[in-house]
Design a protein around this nucleic acid. Sequence first.
DNA 1: CCTTGGCACTCGGTAGACTTGATTGCTAAT
DNA 2: ATTAGCAATCAAGTCTACCGAGTGCCAAGG
Lengths: 337, 337
Amino acid sequence: MNAGVDDRRSTILRAIIEAYIDAAEPVGSAYLASLPGMRVSPATIRNVMSALEGEGYLHQPHTSAGRVPTEKGYRRYVDELMTSADPGPDRAGQVQGFFAKAHQEIEELLSSTTHLLTRMTDLAAVVTGPSAHRARIVSVQLVALSSRTVVVVVVDANGSVEKRTIVWPGEVDSGQLADIGNALTAHFREREVRDVDSPPRFEDPELDKLGAYAFVAVREAVRDAERDGVFIEGASRIAASFGAVETVRDVISILERHYLVVTLMRSLLSRGQGVAIGSEHGVSSLRECAVVVAPYSVDGVEVGTIGLIGPTRMNYASAIGVANLVSENLSRRLSEG
Amino acid sequence: MNAGVDDRRSTILRAIIEAYIDAAEPVGSAYLASLPGMRVSPATIRNVMSALEGEGYLHQPHTSAGRVPTEKGYRRYVDELMTSADPGPDRAGQVQGFFAKAHQEIEELLSSTTHLLTRMTDLAAVVTGPSAHRARIVSVQLVALSSRTVVVVVVDANGSVEKRTIVWPGEVDSGQLADIGNALTAHFREREVRDVDSPPRFEDPELDKLGAYAFVAVREAVRDAERDGVFIEGASRIAASFGAVETVRDVISILERHYLVVTLMRSLLSRGQGVAIGSEHGVSSLRECAVVVAPYSVDGVEVGTIGLIGPTRMNYASAIGVANLVSENLSRRLSEG
DNA sequence: CCTTGGCACTCGGTAGACTTGATTGCTAAT
DNA sequence: ATTAGCAATCAAGTCTACCGAGTGCCAAGG
């Protein structure tokens, strides 16, 4: 079925990569020959390894060492050699159980989903909230904080609430605020935010001006929401994967810059890639890392992403399996009702 | 003025600690004797160091090494020996400039304050949001998400917005929701949340039941808010401070558990401590860390905390100075208007 | 032509011996 | 009480030797 899976070169490459993922140490021909499925002698294996190295799939740290996979090797493994990423019924059950008991609040749901991911894979996990631009706004309200400041509160159909505090251009009048809130609610209601690009119109020119002002605040609130709804957890889990403290610091430093991580994941998805290995994603501080992404959907529309970040020698099969599994369950959970 | 500052033992202890904070290497008698203020010979200094070690202020890693401060040594330094924690006019200007340009949104303000702290000190920084229980609620609104679910949206006087999604006990009626929202707003308005412990009363028994139900949601929203308004940043900055990757992982793992950090800081403040060193705070994973805390106030009432976390050999004077400076500026910023 | 056993070769890592240098504690002189 | 001098200690660096894992290559065998 899968081209190349059964010829010897591929079998050996796969065995090397799996052994390396397992033990994090260079893999030698003698060990490979001792594996149950292997019917050839170490010498033959050495010939094959030498060829694989020539093609760039393996690397030898020094003459008297075994082989280590290169980025190209991992790539081939992920694309062709890896055995199905089925996470197994126990893990499936664990995830289903989690979503069955999950909390109402969407932020808590996403945050604990991140926790679930990092616990199941021992990798750093990322979950981005449903894109606020694609959400449907259910309510807009203006609340006076003082005689000069007003909070614009926006509730969307996912149940997430955004707000923006603004300096009111004039004296606050609670009747006006209510009118504008109602008009904005009616204006946005049942349309995706990104499709609404002009403010509602009012008869009264004074109201019209204020309404346009509040309209801008709504759009800004939605824009802010894109940035806030990002959950990252598990930096500590991958700390031990890297030898140099330097690398640990670089990686954690990136994980602290949420928007950068989100940008990275989005750009991978938009290129249709589910896995980026080492330098493929172009973030130099993460050159010793691999990233696994999966989108999730609400009512059939992809609105958010799930990601896992770990060392290039992560267990890809497990990571991809869990990411997909969680993505499916999360999509189902958010689409119901 | 400060008992013990001028006798020789104290001078030497202070010099050792400051040198160690600076260079992270054991300090020897020859180096100390070469310091400008020091008028005695290495031999004399050795006698003093030996005495200080006997009293538990210093520790010698091995026979032919210099001395390193113990927790007790740092404690004495912070309590008695440290020279004033005045951060200097340039830093004061930097902080003032920051708050002058700071953003409206309270969450963004606190988040960027955390960023400011970690940048200025190169330590991990924590800022907890103003206690929601002490805030005054300005508005409560009920928004229908579907025929069975309702979002209760709470706006407080700080401009922060909390929400809680609940399953509505009955068919949603938008008129009822508005009435209940208005009643709750009036009920909570201008009182601290923690002082309101009974729901508003309604004539209609149906409304009364629903009102009590929504009232519970408001309280839960406020409780959740305590947990959400925590900002931690700078884990990567202190990664390089620890030799063992193991330690790095432990520390970062604690920093990822926000509520634990908040509990720690609160318990320090409630005991009136501004600094906890090493094992003093009782969190074993942070035994190689010190924590500096400072409360901040809104309108004269302490409502939140600022914290800095770093290795025990952090620069205490700088950390305490910056924490206090930022605390003052943040208090002023949040109290105005 | 592919596979395999044999064998020389390479090189990282470990262990031991030795040296160096930093730093101390002690003692006796000031 | 202070200090100079001095022997003692010990981590860290250097050098050497050696071991062992693992390779590459060659020649023999299927």
